[in-house]
Structures are given as structure tokens and as C-alpha cells.
């Protein structure tokens, strides 16, 4: 019987200048959150006073004054936002119902950045008789990563900031 305990040889560097996945395009995200609804672009530039007010109420930094928002026919908002983690850059969409409550959050783009070095794909591994020598086409082939849990706190904070933005700015523009 094979051992149930496999010690991996150390990685000789798999490589990467970054792992990225696109889940949804803008049109796909809009259709996923508000299927069949008419969305009208309502791009908004926050004033300095509005930014300060949002930061004060939410306790979170407003990185960009530009708000990528769409008005939903029949009430509600569709907003595209970005958050930066230590190593990840995430674009996501939030749908707010007519009552201002979160209807859905969908990740659109996920990108990791680790300094951009590219190393040789010379690592080897032995696992259950399988070896993988084929060079990986990064950004395309790396999927289904088993790893320690990456926190979603930045997205949770982003959604909180957008709810305050809706309360202080968008709701009043309706």
C-alpha cells in the first residue's frame, strides 16, 4: 500500500509574474445581477467633501473619486469597484436593490501580483506517480488552486464603502 504521507521535494520555482482570472465581463456581470433590466450609465465623480464624508462614515479610504455606477430601471444601482489587497487586485460588481440593500456581489476580475519575477519552470514534484514537466502557460492554465484561505476582507470593506457612498451620494441624486 502506498504511504499516506508524501513529502514533497522543495519547489524549484514554478514561476510567475501573476495569476489572473476573469469571471465576468461588464455586460455579463450586469446580466447576472439584473437579468433583463435596462441599465443607464450614471458615472459620478465624488467631490472632495463627499469623499471625506464617506471616509468618515465608513472608516475606509476612498481611493478614487470616480464611481462607475449604473441606474437600474425600476430602482436600484449597479456599481463596479476595485479593491487592492496585499497581493491581489480584484474588480467586482455590486447590485443594490431599490431599498439600497445589497442584492448581489460578483467577482469580475481577480489578479495576483507578487513582484513580477519570472523563474525557470524547473521544479519537479512526485505525486502518486505523476510528474508534470509541461511548462505551464501562466494566466491560462493555472486553475483550481488548493491553498491557504485568502481573506475576502478587502471586498467586504469595499461593499461597506459603496453602501455608505449610496447613502450619502447616489440616493440623493435619484
Amino acid at each position: 500500500m502506498p504511504s499516506r504521507w508524501l513529502l514533497a521535494p522543495a519547489f524549484l520555482a514554478a514561476s510567475t509574474s501573476g495569476y489572473a482570472t476573469t469571471y465576468l465581463s461588464l455586460a455579463e456581470a450586469q446580466a447576472a445581477i439584473f437579468p433583463g433590466a435596462a441599465l443607464t450609465p450614471a458615472p459620478t465623480v465624488l467631490t472632495a467633501a463627499q469623499r471625506t464624508a464617506i471616509e468618515k462614515t465608513s472608516g475606509l479610504r476612498v481611493r478614487s473619486p470616480e464611481l462607475r455606477a449604473w441606474r437600474v430601471a425600476g430602482g436600484g444601482w449597479f456599481i463596479v469597484d476595485e479593491v487592492l489587497g496585499k497581493h491581489e487586485f480584484i474588480t467586482y460588481a455590486v447590485g443594490l436593490g431599490p431599498d439600497g440593500a445589497v442584492r448581489a456581489v460578483e467577482i469580475m476580475d481577480y489578479r495576483e501580483t507578487y513582484g513580477g519575477e519570472v523563474r525557470n519552470l524547473k521544479w519537479r514534484t512526485q505525486f502518486a506517480g505523476k510528474t508534470s514537466a509541461a511548462p505551464l502557460k501562466l494566466d491560462l492554465d493555472i486553475k483550481n488552486i488548493s491553498g491557504a484561505t485568502l481573506s475576502s476582507r478587502h471586498i467586504t470593506d469595499g461593499v461597506k464603502r459603496l453602501l455608505v457612498t449610496h447613502d450619502l451620494v447616489l440616493k440623493k441624486s435619484a
Binding site: 522543495a10 519547489f11 520555482a13 514554478a14 514561476s15 510567475t16 501573476g18 495569476y19 497581493h87 495576483e112 501580483t113 507578487y114 513582484g115 523563474r119 521544479w123 514534484t125 505525486f127 505523476k130 508534470s132 505551464l136 493555472i142 486553475k143 483550481n144 488552486i145 488548493s146 491553498g147 491557504a148
Partner: peptide, 14 residues
């Protein structure tokens, strides 16, 4: 894929 324990931005195929 798994992440390299010492360099989580790097991946190995299993």
C-alpha cells in the same frame, strides 16, 4: 495546483 509554501505567488501542478 498548489501554492509554493515559501512563495505563495508560485504554483506547482499536482
Amino acid at each position: 495546483h498548489v501554492r509554493a509554501a515559501a512563495h505563495p505567488g508560485e504554483f506547482a501542478s499536482l
